[in-house]
Design a binder for these strands. Structure first.
Lengths: 342, 342
DNA sequence: TTAATCCACGAAATCGTTTTCGATATTTAC
DNA sequence: GTAAATATCGAAAACGATTTCGTGGATTAA
């Protein structure tokens, strides 16, 4: 069970390991005859270079790290898939870790990846992350890092994002265009930038269309769960202002709300229209099917890897990071929970 | 930006690398005084052992590979999560790859993992895998391998499975107990063992309860999609035999069927009862909520890693693989698409 | 005092690959 | 025929960490 190494091939052929190594890598200072013999024996012995030795020597692992807040999650699992696919095409493998929206876990995961000498790291910030030293220090020490989806403007590195503000603007506008005038917003947790941006987009759309913003029509949630949406829809029904449109922070909240409204025999979209966010799979199979905003996770994952690869190359060449920011376009997916616009 | 190595610490302290290494690993033949000094400087310089060198020397990477047919998939993403969590607790990281149900891809992924010298591999066979040499050779060459969910009896290694036959038996029995007597089965693709097992369980339940099996009540699907379920429900409606119960191969098929039945104003569960399989998230939010069989992916992932870890240890100690098989219990989740049993 | 025991450390060999810099031997140019 | 160019190969030094086996000195036992 002794492993077949360059040395073994060299001895068997009466050559040096240097020659064998060069023969296998097709160096020009090795004769064709020798190359043939070396390759033949390597094939026969089923030689496989030791990746540890290669990594040690070349100072690269061809492995990247990916930290995501969640794994069992339609949007993030699409990101994971996009990253893995793109990475494999470029000869990289991906170690996936999940922060579970915890700042401490996020720091620990980062350390684990760093200890494994990954060539670069892709990370989406947890909702609870308020301090960015763990990231900036990593970057300062030379590890290429790319932020995706949940980012911070305070970190200077490449990023892949959607324009949450614009997307929310269009979602709200979609409701307005279809005739809604008292539009509620089910808002996400307080901290993350995405919550703020989507909320701003909502407000801007109202303002641009002459609808007065009303604090009472904004409902906060912290868990982003189906149950939360269900509960909040209860409040919406009881609201003294007669609400005729809902823009929810995610599809899951929207689905919960939809369920509650249906239970109360409220006609959708005629009495109340509702639009979600993300285009998770579930939004296509509710009844009525949920209108939503498509957030292309797979594409974001691919782009994030491409940016990381660029920075890995930059580092090899001694060039500085690009700090390029890619904004992925989103799109309204009109379905049956909103009326067709005019 | 020169890396901090043992050598550098040794020079700075006038010691040898051997002493520094041993001091950091708390060897007994190093004086407390020296240990203190070494640790202090290591701390100060922020020393981090080079994992490539460690791997090369110790012949282990503390990385395992995980191959799954899909990533954006409720069941498999739960498995991934279970594996990653369990692995991290034992100091292992996980490289995830997806075969996309392709035999060729599966072979390629296996090769990639092997080339990276992972300490072990977890794999669920693709539906199209009919030859197992790529797995058995890997095992023969000494890589610990554990099969989960979609396995083959022809491969001798540890496995984590559910008892598909039994689970299907109970799902069917649940329909029978609630009064159904003409029960259709929406069957999965032909090849995989799970398809066969669930079909057998269905048949056995009928037989054990004096219901005659009828070929015409079995509907085959190949894509396991919502649309497939929708289409097949159309056939079920048109079926000359009046069907009053459906056992679907997965929740997604069941959800598609549910949709079609609702469109046709068929009362659920009174006219037709329906039960799915897997307990995907979506089954809890359809209306009516889908009764189903819980297939605990997270637990399966954890157990699969534990088995792999055992085999990795076995290999280190020169012991043979256990080839242990763990059967994870499943459970009927009765909801509103079936009537309560007696 | 001599011999046995211990303590604290270091030299050196490995792990397997890569690459630089020579060193022969052979061929070409003039 | 001699000098220069070319073609093939190998020695050896990395890359860092680990561990075996000594070694020299101090301590203890006799």
């Amino acid at each position: 069970m002794a492993n077949v190494t360059l040395k073994r091939i060299a001895e068997q052929l009466g050559l040096s390991t240097a020659t064998v190594s060069k023969a296998l890598k097709n160096y020009s200072d090795i004769s064709d005859e020798t190359k043939r013999k070396v390759r033949a024996l390597a094939e026969e012995l089923n030689y496989k270079p030791n990746s540890f030795a290669q990594s040690l020597r070349n100072r690269e692992s061809r492995i990247i790290g990916l930290i995501t807040p969640e794994i069992v999650h339609h949007f993030f699992s699409n990101i994971i898939k996009g990253v893995i696919d793109a990475a494999e095409k470029s000869g990289y493998l991906v170690i996936t870790l999940r922060s579970g929206e915890s700042y401490e876990t996020e720091k620990r995961q980062l350390r684990l990846l760093r200890d494994k000498n990954v060539d670069g790291i892709l990370i989406s910030l947890s909702d609870k992350t308020i301090n960015y030293n763990h990231i900036t220090e990593l970057i300062k020490d030379g590890t290429p890092v790319v932020l995706y989806d949940k980012i911070s403007k305070l970190i200077n590195c490449p990023k892949v994002i959607i324009n949450d503000r614009m997307a929310a603007y269009h979602a709200t506008k979609h409701l307005i265009d279809s005739g809604c005038c008292a539009i509620a917003h089910i808002r996400g947790p307080l901290r993350p930038q995405t919550t703020i941006d989507r909320f701003m987009g909502y407000k801007k759309a109202l303002a641009d269309h002459g609808i007065e913003f009303c604090e009472d029509l904004v409902f906060e949630t912290s868990h982003l769960s189906f149950e939360d949406g269900y509960e909040i829809a209860g409040e919406i029904i009881k609201c003294p202002i007669k609400i005729d449109g809902i823009f929810a922070f995610t599809d899951l909240l929207a689905a919960g709300a939809l369920h509650k409204l249906k239970e109360n025999q409220i006609a959708i979209p005629d009495e109340i229209s509702i639009i979600g966010f993300s285009n998770w799979f579930l939004s296509s199979i509710t009844s009525p099917a949920l209108s939503t905003v498509d957030q292309p996770g797979y594409l974001m994952g691919q782009k994030a890897f491409e940016l990381l690869l660029k920075d890995i190359e930059n580092k090899k060449q001694g060039r500085p990071s690009t700090a390029e920011i890619i904004e992925i376009p989103t799109q309204i997916i009109p379905r049956d929970s909103t009326r067709p616009g005019r």
